[in-house]
């Protein structure tokens, strides 16, 4: 009997301990998450950038006290691209650039996360864009965390980085849009 009680106690302690150190899982809040891009408009003599955003973002953040045990997985609906000019949107979604009918999603899945300072992390992962997967490394900043006005636990991160569209198989029309595309990704996660 004593042994049974002791075992139950140990089991309860183990469960409590594991709960205390368990990673928190957050779901990406599309209403407060942004994927914004800008690309130099070569057709306009390179005198201006074209700006746009993707409005449909989904994903999961796993946040552990140990960054190495944390992870991020994002899925962006490529067809949700919006630059404010419908003809430009259709062109960017066409086979000239994103080819959204063949490649409807853009995904990012982390491979490793490492702390590099207070609230700063180096995230390495696989970015799949236009059907091509490449490993990229970005510096991510934790913007903040806490309870939102609905009392839900939230956490926010953001990063800015540059890719070359030619690395992802979009090699045409360099005389219209520059090869380099700057991306700003801001994610708000709501704890499940």
């Amino acid at each position: 009997m004593r042994r049974r009680i002791l075992l139950s106690l140990l089991a309860s302690l183990w469960v409590l301990a594991s709960l205390g150190f368990a990673a928190d899982t957050y779901e990406v809040d599309p209403a407060h998450s942004f994927v914004i891009f800008r690309c130099r408009n070569v057709a306009q003599a390179g005198a201006v950038f074209a700006y746009g955003r993707f409005t449909d973002i989904k994903g999961t953040l796993v946040v552990d006290k140990d960054p190495a045990k944390s992870s991020v997985a994002l899925t962006i609906n490529a067809d949700s691209l919006d630059t404010g000019v419908p003809d430009r949107d259709k062109h960017l979604k066409s086979p000239d650039f994103l080819n959204t009918k063949q490649f409807p999603t853009i995904t990012f899945k982390s491979r490793s996360i490492q702390a590099i300072g207070k609230n700063r992390y180096r995230v390495t992962g696989d970015l799949t864009l236009h059907g091509v997967t490449r490993t990229i490394t970005v510096t991510v900043t934790k913007v903040g965390e806490g309870k939102n006005i609905k009392g839900m636990q939230v956490i926010g991160f953001e990063t800015t980085f540059t890719i070359r569209r030619s690395d992802f198989g979009m090699k045409g029309l360099m005389n219209i849009a520059d090869d380099r595309v700057e991306l700003m990704v801001a994610i708000l996660g709501i704890r499940k």
């Binding site: 066409s94 086979p95 000239d96």
Partner: peptide, 9 residues
């Protein structure tokens, strides 16, 4: 006109 300059080319 069908929004694909590349295939047009």
């Amino acid at each position: 006109i069908a929004h694909t300059a590349t295939v047009s080319q």
